[in-house]
Nucleic acid binder design. Structure first.
Length: 999
RNA sequence: GCGGGAGUGCCGGAGCGGUCAAACGGGUUGGCCUUAGGAGCCAAUGGCUUAGUGCCUGCGAAGGUUCGAUUCCUUCCCCCCGCACCA
């Protein structure tokens, strides 16, 4: 009712008809299609492609896309070859879940949603090159995900690892670190993420940590850069080894001939026993003519091998140790290979006969928790051999430089050192090491139980149970908590023994998951120490540690030979000292983790891997790509791919033997990490994209999207680009040169507009009522596009009014000659407007457009050129009406492809504009006088006399004033002799402000 | 707690060393037009004052720098965003 009446009265122009007409026309004539053109400068405008949700677009999306469309249209008119594409991030959980609920198929859901999106987006008048559309769930696209994954694998950037991973019970899948927010799933705010130990695929994003940290050359919002920087979280510090002796039984296996045991082993035994370890040196049989198998059997039969065992193999003993490990069925604590362990050397020994030199390294690895290989650089055994072994065992390789001496030399302390049970910690404050009064290991530390003594087991288990059953929220309330493990750590500088606690406030996967606690100089440690009555030892002067920890820099006290140093110097000195004693080293730590890409869900890109019973992990050969997602699947419990026999059961591509397919799919962020490259060449069947085409279009000149992707999509995409650069696919380092973060659109209720909130306004509805041009204009005029904006019906009506006026104005416009003032104003407007659009100050640009139009309205005639300039400026915001009026005034081509107006600086005449301003002020003054006379003196004014300064007389147009005031006017110069001035008002005239007399 | 951004009228928001604080939009009030209008046009919208003027108040609070600050600096308060026990 309401609208109908309004429509009748306002006789609003027929926007629906006009908008449809031009949308069809643009599509028919392929106005926005682009090709590479070496003669033209390119400009790539890109909006983050949407996930095609079933609920479709609301006004918030329209706001978003309009920002990009305005820019694309602007740049196109400026003469750039503009690539402005659209596509759909079509894989993902919502479609799968919706399909399960509706007993349908995610493909069907997705297709429908996309069709809906496309229709709605076309309705917004967006100038995409639709020929470049990409849809990530199509095999033509995801084939290349798989291709890239294989490339990653080939180059050691993809690996499989068993690790503690984040599991969302609602998604029934693991999540990347980036997808866990506050311990909860990024899609399920109320769902706590669980930690599971799973074998998963990872991408080595950390290889590029440092390069990703460099954002200097990016024109991005500072806060996004800072967010990324914080996310990567690089910090410099020192790694320090603390010895924590627990129950350890050393079994020292000597080598051939037993020469080393004469002096070295007794010494080692003595030293270790001094420190509280148990040591045995079994007398291996036949040392003069050794038989490895026999010796292995001897060890297996005579030695106690359990989780407290440390095997130290020396020379041939190393081989024995390795073989022993092969035959165990439960792991021992530690393996130390001290020397002479490499096959070629030992092989030469004549007496080692009939020995099978093949090792089952996987088994060995499984049977020991820690492996240390000591490599003597002066030894005959080349370094590569040691490295090779290291690779196979995944051990810590420790080099030492020393002469090979049988009697205690440099080498012996190093062996001893390796025997000690070291737990390294990371600290940025080694200067406080003398203040360590306890240690805290994370309650989630995988090796926590090794530190727990028998008598403490109950306490620790109780504690672990408690924190498991407490949610994060409650944990905050309880504060820092912990429990004594029973073990003591030895401070490497003071040799003091300090208790080791398990605590809830230490992060398991940062650093080593253990910290040295300095309560005097760390607030967290301070709180913990207070709670558990642990001594607080001040080692840095500067604060009052009775009240709280002093965390600043200062001068060291109670710190042995380092006392008196200032913190920064002490950090240097102490680190140097530790390094010299092999007790620690400089280290860099990152918060950034490798990207976990496996997902236990159906609706994603299948990971192109096969597990063969014989060959192990086998990549699917490139020519067999894509590994298609089977269409027929049964949704039920868990991942439907896992129960799909046709998919899973397969022959090994290598040996043709029995094998099974990887059933995990890729994180959908994999899809979005390179889609901007595919737009450059979206139909390529031979390659992910043509290098030349990508070279022409990339990098994206202007990327537009939300800030919520700062630490996810934007990091992954940057990572991908750098990898592809190193693979030779592209030549640039960064995908997105400029980034713009749009604000959020709020609904009538003041909350961010969203489907779930129910405050969404459909673009179609607004379109129907006001036209999409009015909606676009309103959305862009409210505030700067990077700020949040509120939707309002009144506001859009205001925009419609303006467009309406413009429509009728141009419909009856007769071209002529522009006045000097209009020429000036038009030129000035062009200049300022261009600058505003370029810098995303759309709202300010629109104001200038309004002002210019008002100036037009007051004129009798306007030149064709000025009128056209106005329409061209209107066009990015209101493309339909601009196109319509452009044709209406007699043009045949598309305004969308016209060239941007140029400001003619010579036409800008500020003097004239000043005069106009003065004239307007005068009108205001006179109106005010008339009003005051009427109200105060009850006088009606018939005629007004104006007295200007002599040189200003021509600045005031009598006719114009008469028209504006609708009253008789007489203008005098103050110098005029015969002027009518009964009250002597003329004397009040000032520059730019004439005197006035009214009667 | 740390990091980032902001605080201007009834509201959204301009201004970011002086020449104008409140452009532009919305709202509200009054007037014109009109049978009527929620259409259109005009005007007002911190206070006092006035023939067009002048003065005062004023840009979260308090200080400071400056001849001069909404604009720069310091502290505090509040709001928004991000990270969150990262050693």
């Amino acid at each position: 009712m309401k609208e109908k009446k309004k429509a009748e009265k306002t006789e609003a122009y027929d926007f629906a008809k006009i908008e449809q007409k031009w949308q069809k026309e643009w599509e028919k004539k392929k106005v926005f299609e682009v090709k590479e053109d070496s003669k033209k400068k390119k400009f790539y405008v890109l909006e983050m492609f949407p996930y095609p949700s079933a609920s479709g677009l609301h006004m918030g999306h329209a706001f978003n896309y309009t920002i990009g469309d305005v820019y694309a249209r602007f740049k196109r008119m400026q003469g750039f070859n503009v690539l402005y594409p659209m596509g759909y991030d079509a894989f993902g959980l919502p479609a799968e879940n919706a399909a399960i609920k509706a007993k349908s198929h995610p493909k069907k859901f997705t297709d429908e949603a996309i069709a809906n999106f496309v229709r709605q987006q076309k309705g917004l008048g967006l100038s995409y090159d639709w020929g470049r559309e990409i849809i990530t769930c199509e095999p033509e696209y995801y084939k290349w995900n798989q291709y890239f994954f294989l490339k990653f694998l080939e180059n050691g950037l993809a690996y499989r690892k068993r690790a503690a991973v984040n599991w969302c019970p609602k998604c029934e899948s693991v999540l990347a670190n980036e997808q866990v927010h506050n311990g909860r799933c990024w899609r399920h705010e109320d769902t706590e993420v669980e930690i599971k130990q799973l074998e998963q695929w990872f991408i080595k994003t950390t290889k590029y940590s440092d390069e990703l940290l460099n954002t200097k050359n990016l024109e991005w919002p500072e806060r996004i850069k800072i967010m990324q920087e914080n996310w990567i979280g690089k910090s410099y510090g020192t790694e320090i080894d603390f010895e924590i002796p627990t129950e350890s039984n050393f079994i020292v296996l000597h080598g051939y001939g037993g020469s080393s045991e004469v002096n070295f082993f007794p010494w080692l035994k003595r030293e270790l026993e001094k420190k509280g370890y148990k040591v045995s040196v079994p007398k291996l049989p036949n040392t003069d003519n050794p038989n490895v198998n026999e010796q292995v059997k001897y060890v297996l039969d005579n030695c106690k091998l359990d989780e407290n065992t440390v095997l130290l193999g020396h020379s041939l003993g190393s081989v024995v140790a390795l073989k022993v490990l092969e035959s165990l069925n439960k792991p021992i604590k530690k393996l130390i290979l001290a020397a002479g362990f490499i096959e070629p050397v030992i092989k030469e020994w004549p007496f080692v006969k009939n020995f099978d030199w093949k090792f089952d390294f996987e088994k060995i690895r499984d049977n020991v928790k820690e492996i240390i290989i000591l490599h003597d650089t002066k030894d005959k055994i080349p370094r590569e051999q040691a490295e090779k072994l290291k690779e196979k065992l995944g051990s810590k390789l420790i080099y030492f430089e020393a002469e090979y001496k049988h009697i205690c030399g440099e080498r012996e302390p190093i062996v001893l050192n390796a025997c000690l049970e070291k737990w390294s910690i990371f600290t940025t404050r080694p200067d406080t090491i003398y203040g360590v009064t306890f240690m805290v290991v994370s309650a989630q530390h995988p090796r926590l139980m090794e530190l727990v003594l028998e008598k403490q087991k109950k306490d620790v288990e109780k504690f672990l149970g408690k924190i498991k059953s407490t949610s994060e929220k409650d944990a905050e309330m309880f504060g820092k908590e912990g429990v004594f493990t029973g073990s003591y750590a030895v401070n490497p500088l003071t040799n003091e023994r300090v208790p080791v606690y398990a605590g809830n406030f230490v992060v398991a996967d940062y650093g080593s998951g253990m910290v040295m606690a300095v309560p005097a100089h760390d607030q967290r440690d301070w709180e913990f120490a207070k709670k558990y009555k642990i001594p607080i030892k001040e080692v840095i002067k500067g604060g009052n540690i009775k009240e709280k920890a002093f965390t600043g820099d200062g001068i060291l006290i109670n710190s042995g030979k380092f006392s008196g140093l200032k913190s920064p110097a002490a950090i240097e000195e102490i680190t140097k000292f530790l390094e010299s004693k092999r007790l620690g080293k400089k280290a860099v730590n990152y918060k950034f983790r490798d990207w976990l890409v496996s997902r236990q869900r159906y609706w994603g890109t299948p990971i192109p891997i096969v597990y063969c019973e014989k060959c192990g992990i086998v990549p699917v050969p490139e020519k067999e790509l894509p590994v298609r997602l089977p269409e027929k699947v049964k949704f039920g419990a868990g991942n439907p791919l896992a129960t799909n026999k046709d998919f899973v059961e397969i022959k090994c591509p290598r040996c043709k033997g029995k094998a099974r397919r990887e059933t995990d799919t890729m994180d959908t962020f994999f899809d979005s990490s390179w889609y901007f490259l595919r737009y450059c060449d979206n139909k390529n069947e031979k390659e992910p994209f043509d290098k030349k085409k990508a070279e022409y279009w990339m990098p994206v000149d202007q990327y537009i999207g939300g800030a919520e992707h700062a630490c996810m999509h934007l990091i992954y995409a940057r990572f991908f680009t750098k990898v592809l650069r190193d693979f030779g696919f592209v030549k640039f380092d960064e995908p997105f040169f400029k980034l713009f973060n749009q604000g959020m659109l709020h609904g009538n209720d003041g909350y961010v507009m969203s489907k779930s909130r129910g405050n969404g306004v459909l673009p179609e509805e607004a379109s129907k009522k006001y036209g999409i041009d009015a909606a676009r204009l309103f959305l862009m005029s409210q505030a700067a596009p990077d700020k949040d904006t509120q939707w309002s019906e009144n506001g859009i009506e205001g925009s419609l009014k303006l467009i309406n006026k413009i429509f009728y104005y141009f419909s009856s416009l007769k071209h002529g000659k522009s006045s000097a003032i209009i020429e000036s104003k038009t030129s000035k407007a062009i200049k300022e407007f261009t600058d505003d659009i370029e810098n995303f100050r759309y709202n300010l640009g629109i104001i200038k457009l309004r002002a210019l139009f008002e100036a037009f309205e007051n004129e009798k005639e306007i030149s064709r050129k000025d009128a056209e300039s106005f329409l061209k400026m209107l066009h990015p915001f209101c493309p339909h009406i601009a196109e319509e009026l452009w044709h209406k005034i007699g043009n045949k081509n598309f305004i969308s492809l016209e060239s941007w107006p140029k400001a003619d600086e010579s036409r800008i005449n500020l003097q004239l504009e000043k005069q106009e301003q003065a004239c307007n002020n005068l009108v205001g003054d006179i109106n005010n006088i008339i009003k005051l006379l009427r109200e105060k003196q009850n006088k009606d004014v018939h005629k007004v006399y104006i007295y200007t300064l002599p040189k200003e007389k021509d600045s005031y147009d009598k006719e114009l004033l008469r028209k504006k005031l609708n009253i008789e006017i007489e203008i005098y110069s103050v110098a005029d002799k015969g002027k009518h001035d009964p009250q002597g008002k003329a004397s009040k005239a000032k520059p730019g402000k004439p005197a006035v007399y009214a009667e």
